[in-house]
Amino acid sequence: MRSQLTPAHAVATLLIVLCATIPYLAPALDEPFYVIVFARIMIWAIAAISLNLIMGFGGMISFGHAVYLGIGGYAVGILGFHDVTSAWIQLPIAIGLCALVALVFGVICLRTRGIYFIMITLALAQMVFFLSVSAERYGSDDGLNILWRSEFGSGLIDLEDGVVMYYTIFAVLLGCLLLQWRMVVSRFGMVLRASQSNDTRVQAIGIPTYRYRLAAFVIAGVMCGLAGFLQANLERFVSPDMMNWHRSGELILMTVLGGTATLFGPLVGAVVFLLLSETLSTITIHWHLVFGPFLILVVLFARGGVMGLLGSRTTRD
């Protein structure tokens, strides 16, 4: 793990500093819009980190990861709809629900590998997506507006305050980065990484990898659910589109773009992806025409993503 300082470290540090100072930097640059852009970037980064945990380090390519964004978001939306706005109720329900769904999905998916795993995660996520579309009471396709952000009931964390909202997201992002790092270098992470490269051998040593992989799957689900919780609060809106399968594809894309199985790859990927789509979409409405082939080129030529180009070794090696 310990390596020399590379440009990748510099970029990661720069991004963290940028995220930390944007609420003060943006007004000074007369671009207040950047605050919301970076808040969104950080939320996507949290979701991408959670995906990186299972996909980058565990080799479990979940093509339905956005489902937890939706579940976390709808926990806020539906409870808010019933006038339950206390974060102390919303948050445990969001976490518990994500953990439960991830556990059930994990038990089904982890029986399979490779292509089967990809397609089953996609199909199961699609099931929840259609469930949300068919929930007429909660707005179906149109989604739900959230009148009040989650209330922590203390003066310290008042999410209605934009700056507090921003720094709450920032704190969660730092926490997730820290957790990812601790997990990956721990015995748990070692088993996970080892089972990615040779599951049979790890099992032969006597380690029940299934349990480890399932635990990682659930942890990733909960972490992504947190991102959904934050996203619903930030946008004051939830809709089935949050767990559209395009979102799951974009999550994979961010992670790969930044560099899978690197600690800061998901953050870098989220920054590159959102800034790029933001910029391209202002140039032409047909930006997907450029973006699609760009994606293919990234896959073909830039192996290891941005972090790989910058000389970061993946922790997989």
Binding site: I61, G249, L253, H286, L289, G292, P293, L295, V299
Partner: peptide, 26 residues
């Protein structure tokens, strides 16, 4: 893409979807 991992295949063909959808719209 044949020799690439499933992950690469998923991403590249996802890119193809974006391209085809947009080209059709155009």
């Amino acid at each position: 893409l044949y020799r690439r991992s499933h992950l690469d295949q998923v991403l590249a063909t996802f890119g193809l979807i974006l391209f085809f959808n947009e080209a059709t719209r155009l």
